[in-house]
Amino acid sequence: MASLFTKIVKGEVPAYKVAENSQFLAFLDVRPNAKGHTLCIPKKEVDKLFELEEEMYQELLRFTRKVALGLEKTVSCKRVGMAVVGLEVPHVHVHLIPLNSMQDMDFSRNQEMTEEEFQELADAIKENVVL
């Protein structure tokens, strides 16, 4: 059975996309720790980060860096944090979280946003990501 993220890649489930190329996709987390919380995934479904082929692993990090730089230009924060946990969805995903305090990395704290706020933010980040 396809993961939730594979369904997003296939367009079966909507997402607030901020960047995309032939191998990778970045979209806003719908349960964000902080405004701008973004997920970067390979389009190919692989369960664990270290199961990725070496080249895809390196390319995912390059893609993630570009998204993080765009995110940092868009959302006011001290820095963009990165985390790979991988327990909720069996599909490799890198969390990019705008940080102003350590509490922003607390995955039990989610911020509420409207659909309009998500879309406006996604569009703003998209303008600042250079692939």
Rank of each mutant, 00 (worst) to 15 (best):
P90K: 13
F24C: 03
E115G: 06
V89I: 08
L99A: 05
L39K: 05
E120N: 15
G86L: 08
L49S: 08
S22N: 11
M56F: 01
Q111F: 06
L69M: 02
K66S: 11
C77V: 03
E59F: 00
L52A: 04
M102K: 13
Y57E: 11
V129T: 06
A122L: 01
E116V: 15
P98C: 03
Y57V: 00
K7N: 10
K48I: 02
D104G: 00
E88Y: 03
H37D: 01
K126T: 12
E112F: 13
L96Q: 05
M82A: 14
I8C: 05
A15Y: 01
F118L: 09
P42L: 05
H37V: 06
L61I: 12
P98V: 00
E88N: 15
H95K: 11
K35C: 10
K44S: 08
H95Y: 04
V13M: 13
E116Y: 13
G81W: 14
N110G: 10
S3V: 09
E127I: 04
V9P: 05
L87Y: 11
V80A: 03
F107P: 02
N110H: 12
Q58V: 15
E45D: 07
L39T: 09
S108Y: 12
R65E: 13
K126M: 12
E51P: 11
E116I: 08
V80Q: 03
K44P: 03
M56C: 04
M56L: 15
K17I: 14
D123R: 15
A68H: 04
V89M: 08
G11D: 09
V92N: 09
V46E: 03
P32M: 08
T114R: 07
P32R: 07
Y57M: 11
D123T: 13
M56N: 15
E54M: 00
E72W: 07
E55R: 15
I8A: 02
T74V: 06
V94T: 11
